[in-house]
C-alpha cells in the first residue's frame, strides 16, 4: 500500500511544498524523481555535446559520436515518463495530459503565428515553438497543483 505524506501548505513554504505534491503516492514520487534525474542528465549532455561540437579543433566524427549520448538519455527520459504516466494516480495523470495538450497547443499556435510574420528570423523558429510549449506545460502543472493543494486544505478543515 502506498505511503501518504503530508506537508504544510500555508504561507510561502506551503507554496514551495506544492511542488512536493502533498498526498502523492510513493510510487509516483519515485517515478517522478527518475524522470527528473534523466531529464537533467539529458539537458547537461546536450549542452556538453553542443560545446564540444562548437569547439573549432574538434574533428567531425566526434560530433556524430557524442550525439549518441543525448539521444540515448532522451530515450531514457521518454521511457521513464511513459512509466510515470502508466503508473500514475489517475487524477494527476489527467492533469499531465491536460498540461501536455496545453503545451502542445501553445507551441503550435505561437510558433505558427511567428512563422507567418514577415522577417521573423528562421533560426528562432524552433525556440519560438519549444519555449512557449515548455513554459505553458510547466505553468499548467504548477497552477493545477496549487489548486489541488488549496482544495485539499479547505476540506481538511471541514473534517
Amino acid at each position: 500500500m502506498s505511503k501518504q505524506q503530508e506537508y504544510p501548505r500555508r504561507g510561502p513554504v506551503g507554496w514551495l511544498n506544492v511542488l512536493k505534491w502533498e498526498g502523492m503516492r510513493e510510487v509516483d514520487r519515485q517515478n517522478e524523481k527518475r524522470v527528473n534525474i534523466y531529464a537533467v542528465l539529458w539537458a547537461l549532455s546536450l549542452i556538453g555535446t553542443a560545446l564540444v561540437v562548437a569547439w573549432d579543433g574538434s574533428p567531425d566524427w566526434i560530433g556524430w559520436a557524442l550525439a549518441i549520448i543525448p539521444a540515448a538519455l532522451g530515450i531514457l527520459v521518454l521511457r521513464s515518463y511513459l512509466k510515470l504516466l502508466r503508473d500514475m494516480d489517475e487524477m494527476l495523470r489527467q492533469m499531465q495530459f491536460e498540461a501536455m495538450a496545453i503545451g502542445f497547443g501553445t507551441g503550435m499556435i505561437t510558433g505558427n503565428t511567428l512563422v507567418i510574420i514577415d522577417g521573423f528570423p528562421r533560426e528562432w523558429i524552433a525556440p519560438a515553438i519549444v519555449v512557449p510549449m515548455a513554459f505553458s506545460y510547466a505553468l499548467r502543472i504548477l497552477l493545477g497543483a496549487r489548486r489541488l493543494a488549496c482544495d485539499a486544505a479547505e476540506t481538511e478543515e471541514v473534517q
Partner: peptide, 21 residues
C-alpha cells in the same frame, strides 16, 4: 479520513478530495 481512504484505494488524497467535491 481522506488519507485512509486514499491508501485503501491506492490513490492520492487529492484524488479522493476531488471526487468528493
Amino acid at each position: 479520513s481522506q488519507a485512509t481512504l486514499a491508501e485503501l484505494l491506492d490513490v492520492s488524497r487529492q484524488t479522493v478530495n476531488a471526487i468528493e467535491l
